[in-house]
Nucleic acid binder design. Structure first.
Lengths: 199, 199
DNA sequence: ATTATCTATAGATCTATAGATAATGC
DNA sequence: ATTATCTATAGATCTATAGATAATGC
């Protein structure tokens, strides 16, 4: 039973870390602040995660799990509407979005412990987005783009909109803007011979 | 002459701060690190900028100046090719891009001193991008978008591509990707009755 | 006088280690 | 024994203030 209690405690701590990172970034997040939020001393927290970086790793793994699950289709790719609904879901959870936007921003600075994680993840995500686009629209997209060339744009729009929305939620309707971007990608665009839907 | 010497010194310090922020973010940038880079003691630096935040403000003002100047056209708006060439220019200056990407990321966290700056700036930039799009393509864009609705997407693509490129410059061709996005916006897209060029 | 710098230092933090104590599980 | 916590504390930092010293400009 101690085993299970311990896992709960760790999950609690990770949740608290998510919050503190959202508020202060990783460098600004102190172990004491996280510990306080779960009613532990700073040293008590280090019993569960021996270093600050170990805690960050747990936070990043949590995310991996978080947006890996969910509705794939028969061939393993997501449907594109699912992506739109993920954006809507995110729009209801500013905290999580803020945590990972803050981490992404920090991760480009020198020797940041999350840098490798994000580099790898974006490679994956671009490939995954290309697969989704191909499954949805086939090989030829508006503007003469291929799925592989559109994928980084799709990812960029997702991330970029998050920053604008976090800074000024009243001025930026993130889900609507994302839908607008999808409208640009739908067949019939510049160059776009209308596409037959994939079989 | 002391006046002029002083202005030079301040400019030197701001330049050093840009570098240190690129490497460690604002919260991670210590005054000592900046001071060392210009051959001053930490306390000597505080003679020029009385607080760390005052130095940050100077850094942000520098940027304002930096990308406000340059080629507008007769009605005061930029031409869209100029935007593409700004992206090419940025692709040769990872340092600057990294500084402001790191600051943008941090700025969404609680009470960050650059938050207001970025909020205001994005409002401005969206308006400015809408004007550029209108001047270039008129009122109706592909996908049934208006310039106002396309503007946040354009800004998002600019920012989002920067993160992907900073994390993995060999995998992301930022200027080419931006050109791809512009291709999506050119008339003739979905919905797009071909547009007459604006008078 | 003002400007540019320095040394000294106060007062806060922060991460991590060492070692004690109590409770739980075999 | 192991697990969960705590107190104490080392050792680094960090920002900012106080006050000295030297040089420069009227």
């Amino acid at each position: 039973m101690a085993r299970a209690r311990s896992a709960e405690r760790r999950a609690e701590i990770v949740r608290a870390a998510l919050e503190v990172i959202a508020e202060r970034g990783y460098r600004g997040a102190s172990l004491s602040a996280v510990a306080e939020r779960v009613g532990l001393s700073q040293q008590g927290l280090l019993h569960y995660f021996p270093t600050k970086e170990a805690l960050l790793v747990a936070v990043l793994e949590e995310r991996d799990q978080w947006d890996t699950g969910g509705g794939t289709r028969s061939d393993g790719t997501w449907r594109i509407e699912l992506l739109a609904s993920l954006v809507e879901y995110n729009a209801m959870r500013p905290g999580i979005v803020q945590t990972f936007s803050a981490l992404l921003g920090e991760s480009v600075t020198g020797g940041h412990p999350a840098r490798d994680f994000f580099t790898r993840r974006y490679t994956q995500v671009r490939a995954s987005m290309a697969a989704i686009l191909r499954a949805e629209y086939g090989e030829r997209l508006p503007g003469g783009l291929t799925p592989e060339r559109a994928a980084p744009l799709l990812v960029a729009v997702l991330d970029g909109l998050q920053y604008q929305w976090l800074l000024d939620p009243d001025s930026v309707d993130m889900p609507a803007a994302f839908e607008d971007f999808l409208a640009l990608l739908r067949p019939g665009g510049p160059d776009g011979a209308p596409q037959p839907p994939p079989p």
